[in-house]
């Protein structure tokens, strides 16, 4: 068998459930931690980013309107699919991050478990964060959390899979859709994750993944009027403030998460809360 030439994968973007190359025709070489060539990744452009936002917006009514039970099952299905590809991800994470196989294994396991954790949250968020408001008058008033809309996520640069899952799962758990700029130098696990997402009953466009230069793509997302929120986790330090300034143009919700976040720790609700709106509904009571 050692004579066999393996079939190398072409790594592409993931937009609207499809796997296009960058419309710009550009690609960039991805290497392992020692500098050995792994693959060429698509170098996403401004146009790709706008296409991804369009796809995310189009997917929003369906995904936010799906039942929480349904979203929970889809997220759990992602964990199932990821589990089935566990060995592949261990190899890719090991190559991308330069960690020993055992460490890579624990990172992949944690990423799988994170999907399960967030899958369980979908139908509990409203009970934990919502309320019946005891107003001083003859009204029934209740408040429910609702998804903010399209969230642009700048994924962590270091943690290529666990970090990525940790920032994407909370966005979609509550019904948002996402445009994700992957780790610039470690994008391959993310692209393989998109293959998992595509086979997990996740509707096309709910998660869109762009590989390329974070500093090139991020400003277009930060200023895009159809993006409602921005996660700065993987933003280069030098452009963080600029991105926030751009985001202010349409009053985006900005999560100023730091790149130093430790994704091996058990998460809390803060990333779910960051992309929720509280809606309060009133109705009079009477006969």
């Amino acid at each position: 068998m050692s004579d066999r030439i393996s079939v190398a994968k072409t790594y592409k973007l993931y937009i609207g459930g499809a796997f296009p190359r960058s419309e710009s025709g550009r690609s960039y070489p991805v290497t392992d931690h020692k500098g050995a060539f792994l693959a060429n990744a698509a170098q996403g452009s401004r146009k790709d980013a706008r296409d991804a936002v369009g796809a995310a917006r189009k997917a929003f009514p369906g995904w936010s309107g799906a039942t929480a039970y349904n979203r929970g099952q889809v997220l759990y299905r992602v964990a199932e699919m990821l589990e089935g590809r566990r060995e592949q991800f261990i190899a890719e994470v090991s190559a991308a991050e330069g960690v020993p196989a055992k460490k890579a294994q624990s990172l992949v396991d944690a990423a799988i478990d994170r999907w399960v954790w967030y899958a369980g949250w979908t139908d509990k968020i409203a009970s934990v964060l919502g309320a019946a408001n005891p107003v001083a008058g003859p009204y029934f008033s209740f408040s429910t959390p609702e998804p903010t809309g399209v969230v642009a996520v700048l994924a962590p640069q270091q943690s290529s899979l666990l970090g990525l899952v940790s920032v994407v799962a909370p966005v979609i758990a509550s019904g948002n859709t996402a445009v994700v700029v992957t780790s610039q130098d470690r994008p391959l696990p993310a692209i393989t994750l998109s293959e998992v997402l595509a086979t997990s009953d996740l509707p096309g466009g709910v998660v869109n993944l762009l590989t390329g230069r974070t500093a090139e793509i991020a400003p277009w997302l930060a200023s895009h009027a159809d993006v409602n929120a921005l996660d700065l986790t993987g933003a280069p330090e030098s452009i963080r403030a600029d991105l926030e300034r751009s985001a202010a143009g349409t009053v985006k919700r900005v999560l100023r998460a730091r790149p130093s976040e430790d994704f091996t720790r058990e998460p809390d609700l803060s990333r779910i809360r960051a992309y929720l709106e509280t809606k309060t509904v009133w109705h009079p009571m009477g006969v």
Partner: peptide, 11 residues
């Protein structure tokens, strides 16, 4: 079926 109601308990 109402409008402009405010209460400290209601976000």
């Amino acid at each position: 079926n109402t409008f402009n109601r405010f209460d400290p308990t209601a976000p």
